[in-house]
Write a protein that binds this DNA or RNA. Structure first.
Length: 346
DNA sequence: AAACGCCGCAACCGCCGAGGT
DNA sequence: AACCTCGGCGGTTGCGGCGTT
């Protein structure tokens, strides 16, 4: 039910707050505490509506408000949480001590959103903007390379970065859960090939998976590592799903890897050393983050806790440096369809 | 120095859900 | 059940500051 704006009443002031008004409001709240906003302005001697007083207090006058530029760490938190929560600014603010929802919303709209757009990333879905991709070249590349598809290709770096392969993994997991058929320990090559052919997944070029392997990191080792991590991912998803009575796992199976996300590196050349490849590390981090996600989103609002971060940040960095950092941290992605309410209630 | 446009941010608007009567 | 109040939220606006021409 809608109702008339509270500030429509005659005699109530609007617009910027004066120092005197701020003092009145602060003094009153220090004596009586916040709340009962309807009667507060009258009692405090303010010609403002209660709503205006509440906003002024929560967004500006509250003593625990942090001022100044957002740190990389805070920015990372905002982007990660936004990929999970969407425009739930208050929920995001609950994870950032001293920051208000209004401040975060403004920062998103004026800085982060624009940066994502510059990077060709949709700030709403956190996915690469498909309208910027040359779809025809992708399709033609796929068709040209189908004949060279083999297991080695599948286990190359790009395969792991490719959401379609992960999609296959979760699809199999889904089948396992639904049919109770024993999960095959080792996928057959032809199964994967058929799947990829059917889904037009872009395979690697031969020079992409052969050339980069360097000393100390053989093709066999990289394949083993990839296998290990794909299985590890499956294990994480399975464990996670079981612990959440399969409801969230169901969402994951359907959506977690279906959306384009930052792990999909497109036509980027493969970085030789997988162990140092930030994309590869990002994948590991992604499901590590996943397994600890309840701790990320369920901390009570009254006791906000900063998210842990292994990164080191310098606040005075340039926008370009933030762009660069952004491109790495954005490889973390959770589908919007994830039932956040369910998460929050855990 | 003036005009103009852009940007960032504080504040407002309109809607919603919860809870009370 | 219907209505009302209240607090809260997300989207939008408007103004001041700043840089550019």
């Amino acid at each position: 039910m809608g109702r008339a704006p509270c500030c429509d009443k005659a005699g109530l002031k609007k617009g910027p707050w004066t120092l005197e008004e701020d003092h009145k409001l602060v003094n009153y709240i220090q004596l009586h505490g916040p709340g009962n906003w309807r009667t507060l302005p009258k009692n405090a001697g303010l010609q403002r509506c209660g709503k205006s007083c509440r906003l002024r207090w929560t967004n500006y006058l509250r003593p625990d408000i942090k001022r100044g530029r957002f740190s990389f760490e805070e920015e990372e938190t905002i982007i990660q949480l936004h990929s999970i929560l969407g425009n739930k600014w208050s929920a995001i603010a609950a994870r950032l001590p001293g920051r208000t929802d209004n401040e975060i919303k403004n920062y998103w709209n004026t800085h982060i959103r624009k940066r994502l757009l510059r990077m060709g990333i949709d700030p709403v879905t956190h996915a690469p903007r498909l309208d910027l991709l040359d779809l025809s070249s992708i399709l033609s590349s796929t068709l040209c390379n189908q004949s060279i598809l083999n297991m080695s290709n599948l286990l190359g770096t790009q395969a792991l970065m490719n959401p379609e392969l992960l999609r296959l993994a979760t699809t199999i997991l889904s089948l396992k859960q639904e049919s109770q058929v024993p999960f095959p320990q080792n996928l057959q090559e032809n199964q994967l090939c058929n799947f990829l052919l059917q889904n037009q997944v872009q395979p690697l070029q031969p020079n992409q998976y052969q050339a980069p392997i360097q000393e100390g990191f053989s093709s066999e080792k990289s394949n083993q590592l990839m296998q290990t991590n794909v299985e590890g991912f499956l294990s994480k998803v399975a464990t996670f799903g079981d612990s959440q009575e399969n409801s969230i796992a169901s969402d994951l199976n359907e959506n977690f890897v279906c959306q384009p996300n930052y792990m999909y590196c497109g036509s980027n050349p493969i970085v030789p050393d997988l162990a140092e490849n930030p994309n590869f590390q990002s994948l590991n981090n992604s499901y590590q983050n996943f397994s600890s996600f309840d701790s990320v989103v369920s901390t009570p609002k009254s006791s906000p806790t900063p998210l842990n971060s292994s990164s080191t940040f310098i606040n005075s960095s340039t926008e370009d440096e933030r762009d660069s950092h952004c491109s790495n941290l954005l490889k973390f992605e959770i589908p919007e369809s994830l039932d956040i309410d369910e998460f929050m209630s855990i």
